[in-house]
């Protein structure tokens, strides 16, 4: 499957998704440039399933989130078709003040730890995650440090 075929398939199946992978980057990056797909959040899991089965993107690279301040949180996930070298960067905006997102764990087992980390750092509630606990910080930590509203020097008792 080539990059163009993959893009055509995505456009056919997910008409509401915004496919924009042609932002020109340096020559070095061109070979590994992913197809960037921006989705409505309700199609997050359905698209992952489609990418895995139809596009052959079986390799789960990572997932994370970005805090766009008043515009709310955005979740991102990178998956790859290793045989054909096609990468897909999935993105979805959760909307202002929303912290609920469907989980990718039913599709990719690798999402289990990545989403736990994401919950830990951003407080995103992944619905359908079997074991949503903090990953890197201790269980009694207060707040979610990668949010922009969390100051770098926020004191954490008893370590002040």
């Amino acid at each position: 499957m080539t990059r163009e075929q993959a893009k055509a398939l995505i456009g056919e199946r997910f008409s509401s998704a915004q496919v924009d992978g042609d932002a020109p980057t340096s020559a070095e990056a061109t070979a590994s440039r992913p197809i960037v797909v921006t989705l409505p959040v309700d199609q997050w899991t359905a698209f992952a399933q489609f990418a895995k089965t139809t596009l052959g993107c079986r390799f789960f690279s990572f997932s994370s989130a970005v805090d766009w301040k008043e515009q709310g949180l955005e979740v991102v996930a990178r998956i790859d078709n290793l045989d054909d070298g096609v990468g897909v960067m999935m993105k979805a905006r959760l909307g202002p003040g929303v912290s609920a997102c469907p989980s990718l764990v039913p599709v990719f087992r690798g999402a289990e730890w990545m989403e736990r980390e994401c919950y830990d750092m951003f407080g995103i509630q992944f619905e359908g995650h079997p074991d949503l606990r903090r990953m890197l910080l201790s269980d009694d930590w207060q707040g979610h440090p990668l949010l922009k509203s969390y100051a770098v020097d926020t004191p954490h008792p008893p370590y002040r």
């Binding site: 070095e28 070979a31 590994s32 079986r58 390799f59 690279s61 070298g85 990719f108 087992r109 690798g110």
Partner: peptide, 29 residues
Amino acid sequence: ELAEDVGIAGPLLRGSGVNFDLRRAAPYS
């Protein structure tokens, strides 16, 4: 199948039969 699903990489991935190395698949530098 597990290797790709979890997203393990490098010698682990190649030890599980996936011929994938970024130096070859997406050469940089």
